[in-house]
């Protein structure tokens, strides 16, 4: 059936089943492939998006539950990679294979909106849902601290 979704500020009318996972509607129907599929059971964080500013695992979110809400994906974080997290991620060359990094950055953005100056402990517990098989965790931590510094300037 036809549903209307607001993604990164633009509204899209999509003809999908109500119980379709939001992840695949964003990727296949709307065509924003920055949000990634990693596990399908909300255990790896690669599909993290923002729904009304809160982090959500889009692989286990029904598209019907996101209607009427403001959805933000990695592509919508900033028009030209100038969000403090994107600047910090680039400055520290944080990604290796990069596949999990959209989810890491979106989870980190939700963390920074809750905690302006997170400690290592805050980062560890809040980001524990996001797996990185390349093991870039040290740089992720450093980049979040750096992003907090940039945001505070």
């Amino acid at each position: 059936m036809a549903l209307t979704l607001t993604v990164n500020g633009t509204s899209h009318v999509v003809d999908v089943e109500a119980e379709s996972p939001l992840l695949w509607v964003i990727r296949d129907t709307i065509g924003l492939t920055g949000t990634k599929f990693g596990c399908g059971i909300a255990k790896c964080g690669a599909c993290t998006v923002h729904i009304d500013g809160r982090a959500a695992k889009s692989c286990t979110t029904k598209v019907s539950a996101a209607v009427g809400k403001s959805i933000t994906t990695i592509e919508g974080l900033s028009p030209d990679s100038t969000h403090p997290l994107q600047v910090a991620w680039t400055e520290l060359d944080t990604p290796q294979c990069g596949y999990c990094q959209s989810g890491q950055i979106m989870a980190a953005a939700a963390l920074l909106s809750k905690r302006a100056n997170p400690s290592d402990f805050d980062i560890d517990t809040e980001m524990a849902d996001n797996i990185c098989r390349c093991g870039t965790y040290t740089k992720i931590r450093a980049a979040i601290h750096r992003a907090a510094e940039i945001a505070a300037q």
């Binding site: 990634k36 990679s81 994107q86």
Partner: peptide, 21 residues
């Protein structure tokens, strides 16, 4: 030197096999 592929990996634009359309 900084990695050439990083800018593509912080805004979701890098294309992986699963992203082909």
């Amino acid at each position: 030197v900084a990695r050439l592929d990083t800018p593509l990996k912080v805004n979701g634009s890098a294309t992986y096999g699963i992203d082909i359309r």
